[in-house]
Design a protein around this nucleic acid. Structure first.
Ligand SMILES: [Mg+2]
Ligand SMILES: [Mg+2]
Lengths: 470, 470
DNA sequence: AGGATGTTTATAAACATTGGA
DNA sequence: ACTCCAATGTTTATAAACATC
């Protein structure tokens, strides 16, 4: 667990095999979910909308990992996320030619990368991942072991990234502490692989096989600021005020709680959901004021960071030119029964390289990726979920048109401030009808005394200082 | 392609290896998505709600596949679907003890299994899946090749299943033809593996490797009846009336169209979404009248079929008892780094059996499933998407409480009839805010002359007889 | 301590549409 | 005008991490 020294360990464990790939600290997988990164990307544009291609580029530019090590399937994931989360909406240019992706304003928390970038990398941590853990062997995914690609120090990603607080969804609690560094660095922190943050906590150290789990990203994605709104009412609405001093030693863990949240709660049966909760005086608890680095207040104008800032012809037009080929193989992974000579035979075990190789043979090759092994076997536990999103119920109640203003309200003021405003009955039905948006509480707790490295196994449980959370 | 005879072929290709498992026609994977099956299950109960366990049981009882061949991970998928789709809502019993899953009434199309069961199996088709296709070899998933479980002819699944119309989401078009058998039988039809329904259509027959794709279920799940509602307005709302005689020969394919649907459409930029569309006279086009087998009209009472019909203590209480163990390995697949001696070493290549083996070693064993091969490489095309759902905008406009009635409106009357009622501006914003529900057009086209078997490669394209669809 | 139940994120993949070559 | 294909979209399937009870 003693961080650092990882350099040494790396040398030992990282067989000269596999020509780097992950080695470059800049090419480490960022601790953000695709949903979060897409938001970073889109919000970096003043127009607040981007074409798919621009999103790809923005992400590659800011997170070398995707350009250098990620499998081509990452683009499929981006598309998947755009479609899946209704927070992302596709619009079409007036001329119907191009279509961009935007963030539903009512749901836009205006997450931007610079908000999570750590001002400075004060720690001495070599930022070298891999933990001593036993084998640290193969098994993970690793893109094909080839194509170095001369990782250009492309602008961004210099500062250490501050991961979004994982699993943060505690309701109604716009918390914001002193603001320090990161609380927990999922993927890059050497402690990550040490022991599953939570894990069975029992036979954990049993055998060997540090498989390098894929570390599921925070889950948040649309937090980081304030904006609460009960939503999914009926469940003990609590207002809390965190006292950082109280926390024991755990660093990461559950941020929310209350019986697997996300539910539409009971109702003795066909009963009318009688909204019953404090109403207001709930959202002002958090600190949310000293939000230094946060810039959301008014007109979500430009973006301090994000030098590239596409929009300029250039990126968009690398289009048809097969030149830009960061990675050869194309997006959507497929497994067409037929057509697969190209690779097929080569049992490219571990890291199947795929860059410089044959330029996409016309009829999508794609060797059947050697299906997993199929042999689950394991036993685990369970968790909770987020909440629907909504488009300002007040307006609906007013029987007026949905978006009186909207032009320059890119970062929905509601989400950021309308904390404990009037919430009515309709919410019970309206709110839990929508998706990813509200209900996500923006919590950005930072404990100055905790550095990214010394987060071995620390666990912070809201319930520890928030009794109301049951 | 020529169906039947598959028995023979099966004998030839199915090496005495793998002790059956898929052999049993009753244990073939049903052509329904998890979402659809969950609806079947829940709607089979008069109360319209089920506990997770009941859902598991109902599905196992009606689709032997899950009890006999599916990997234990299928339960994880069920849970995943319950959480993911907000159509499914978890409620808690008054006493807060148990929690059941229900279907949001506004979104419940009252799909029931008997609605898709074919009255009789008139065809001579041995119902034997596997097509002659080349290897038909391994690679797929196959649960561990053991544990026969003495497949009890447990009630259901006698009649041939009629798959939901795949990819049916054409907007505003409540179509309903004569009503015959199935249009296309995704997984059981011998034609399925023959050639990718659509596919590149070029080098298709190149090499070999019938990998047995996983056949993505229809997508519909909540169609089958009527209920339209434009939703996601702004896109050419068309009312059509299909004329079955016109169809060329294709049997399956795109049901919807119009530029990758699901979008929030343009707006010259910060423009107000000026709802502009015919309004009404759109939904009454379809036949929707001669809905013989459909029983949704009034009180969604019992269910003709579904003999089991849980609810009776018995199923619910197999709970804590570890006896019911249909399948050993448990639900959520995991991959805990440590703890993995049991298998680990054994490079269980192809069909890693795992049933009779060591009874779950406490701390979830789980050999790292031999990650795929990682080397996508392929090129494919793309499609479209569904639409948000909503909870009756009219009510919201009326500024009244969301669900005036609700008790006995289990199968939302709106979804079934309110076709072209008053839709207002709010919809533009409200509607596309919600999820899986409306926007799914219930189309159940049946062409008496088409039998499940003779659907070799036929493709039906809406655009062929629905010019408006562009 | 461990299993059942829930919630989310990650990936792969099937399949659909569309614009360009 | 046309076919073919890659890019773009939409969904479903699975695995898995992680959380609660
Ligand atoms: Mg979307
Ligand atoms: Mg749900």
């Amino acid at each position: 667990m003693s961080s650092n020294h990882s350099d040494f360990l790396n040398i030992i464990y990282c067989q000269p095999k596999a020509p780097e790939k992950e080695k470059d600290p800049l090419s480490e997988r960022p601790p953000y979910s695709y949903m979060a990164m897409i938001q970073f990307a889109i919000n970096s544009k003043k127009n607040r909308h981007m074409t798919l291609k621009e999103i790809y580029n923005w992400i590659e530019d800011h997170f070398p990992y995707f350009r250098n090590v990620a499998k081509p399937g990452w683009k499929n994931s981006i598309r998947h996320n755009l479609s899946l989360h209704d927070m992302f909406v596709r619009e079409t240019s007036p001329d119907g030619k191009i279509s961009y992706w935007t963030i539903r304003p009512e749901a836009n928390r205006c997450l931007t990368l610079d908000q999570v970038y750590k001002p400075l990398v004060d720690t001495v941590t070599p930022t070298c991942p891999q933990i001593p853990q036993v084998g640290f062997n193969k098994q993970q995914k690793r893109g094909p072991p080839e194509l170095k690609k001369a990782i250009p120090p492309t602008g961004g990603t210099e500062r250490k990234m501050k991961p979004l607080l994982p699993r943060t969804d505690s309701y109604l609690v716009p918390i914001q502490l002193p603001l320090g560094q990161s609380l927990f660095l999922p993927s890059s922190s050497p402690a990550t692989l040490a022991t599953p943050p939570h894990a069975p906590s029992s036979s954990t150290p049993s055998s060997s096989g540090a498989i390098k789990r894929v570390r599921i990203a925070p889950k948040v994605s649309q937090m980081m600021l304030c904006a609460s709104t009960s939503q999914d009412i009926k469940e003990e609405p609590v207002s809390v005020s965190v006292t950082p001093e109280a926390l024991p030693s755990k660093t990461r863990q559950q941020e929310n709680s209350s019986s697997r949240r996300k539910q539409r709660l009971v109702l003795p049966a066909t009963e009318e959901p009688v909204l019953l909760y404090p109403d207001s005086t709930l959202f002002d608890s958090g600190v949310v004021s000293d939000v230094s680095t946060f810039q959301d207040t008014h007109d979500p104008e430009p973006e301090p960071s994000c030098k590239p800032d596409p929009d300029s012809p250039n990126r968009e037009y690398t289009f048809k030119t097969p030149i830009k080929s960061s990675h050869p193989s194309s997006s959507t992974p497929s497994k067409l029964p037929a057509v697969l000579e190209p690779w097929r035979i080569t049992p490219v075990r571990k890291g199947g390289v795929l860059d410089f190789s044959p330029i996409r043979t016309p009829s999508g090759p794609q060797l059947t990726p050697q299906r997993h092994e199929h042999t689950p076997f394991s036993f685990n536990s369970t968790p909770f979920k987020e909440l629907p999103l909504f488009s300002s119920p007040r307006e609906l109640l007013t029987c007026s048109r949905p978006s009186p203003r909207r032009s320059n309200a890119t970062c929905s003021r509601e989400l950021l401030q309308e904390g404990a405003t009037n919430r009515s009955l309709t919410e019970g039905l309206v709110l839990d009808t929508m998706n990813d948006s509200l209900s996500k509480i923006l919590v950005d707790i930072s404990f100055p005394n905790l550095e990214d490295d010394d987060l071995g196994m620390a666990n912070i449980s809201w319930s520890q200082f928030i009794p109301e959370l049951k």
